[in-house]
């Protein structure tokens, strides 16, 4: 897809050259893990029962890690559409539309740059989670396959949500529309999932809804490999189902993005 790499590089240059967005990108993961992980430390009420309630996790931060990694993918991905609208409003999109490139690469470059930013944040988050007092504890070790599962889950959740919001941005001229939709759905997506809390602590109806939320699939997959290390066959089966669900949804969203952006993108 001609133009994909130069446009991705351009998007990343704009990101790291803007001191506010670069600093926010670094600080945000710190806030997530330090503030959210400590303030919502519901494990302190569980005491010795913590591993039983939190699916084997020794503490809440270790439990939360899978959720936070997913939410970073979700939130950063959601805003990838914004840059397309900016380019439209600044006139830059007009130049890109005149270039002899596959128009889908205009949209895919934003998705790709979101993914790069997400992984930078994920790396920072891991670093902080390890060094902070009472932080992340990987008690059962972590294999290459576990790392692949972790990266794939974050990658797929990033693709799903950045594709979704890029499709919205392909024809939208108003920032307010995207912000409105982001605000409307980000909290339900986060709280109607297993990102923050185990199903047993949720109302039954919410837990039933959360089962079908891709945020839950990603959170649970990452969580299981971080907490358990080598998985039992039933755990591996659960992770496989979740990962296949994420894969199917990612492929669907990426194909949709390709079709919609090629056909519908307008200046």
């Amino acid at each position: 897809m001609g133009g994909l790499i130069p446009l991705t590089v351009r998007d990343l240059k704009r990101w790291y050259r803007n001191p506010v967005s670069a600093v926010v990108g670094v600080i945000q993961p710190i806030f997530w893990i330090v503030l959210f992980g400590s303030a919502f430390d519901i494990a302190k009420f569980a005491g010795a029962n913590t591993p039983a309630i939190f699916e084997g996790a020794p503490d809440y931060i270790t439990y939360l890690m899978g959720g936070i990694l997913t939410i970073i993918g979700l939130f950063t991905g959601m805003f990838s559409g914004i840059n397309i609208i900016w380019d439209r409003r600044l006139g830059i999109l007009q130049r890109l539309l005149m270039a002899p490139i596959n128009r889908a690469s205009i949209v895919f470059s934003r998705i790709l740059s979101s993914v790069v930013r997400i992984f930078i944040q994920v790396a920072i988050l891991f670093g902080i989670a390890f060094v902070m007092p009472n932080g992340l504890k990987i008690v059962n070790g972590i294999s290459i396959i576990d790392v692949v599962i972790l990266i794939s889950a974050v990658l797929m959740i990033s693709f799903i949500f950045s594709s979704l919001f890029s499709i919205i941005a392909v024809r939208t001229t108003k920032m307010e529309t995207v912000f409105g939709i982001v605000n409307l759905i980000n909290l339900p997506l986060m709280f109607a999932s297993y990102a923050m809390f185990p199903p047993d602590l949720m109302a039954t109806w919410l837990s039933n809804v959360a089962k079908y939320n891709p945020v839950s699939w990603s959170s649970q997959s990452i969580r299981m490999v971080l907490i358990h290390g080598s998985l039992t066959s039933s755990e591996a089966h659960t992770v496989l189902i979740y990962m296949l669900g994420l894969l199917a949804l990612s492929v669907f969203m990426l194909v949709m993005t390709y079709i919609v952006s090629n056909r519908e993108i307008r200046e």
Binding site: P6, L90, A99
Partner: peptide, 18 residues
Amino acid sequence: TTDGDLSGRENLKLVAEL
């Protein structure tokens, strides 16, 4: 239609790559 966040040279380089 040029990108204000890129230098004059980078803008031209981007167009050349496209």
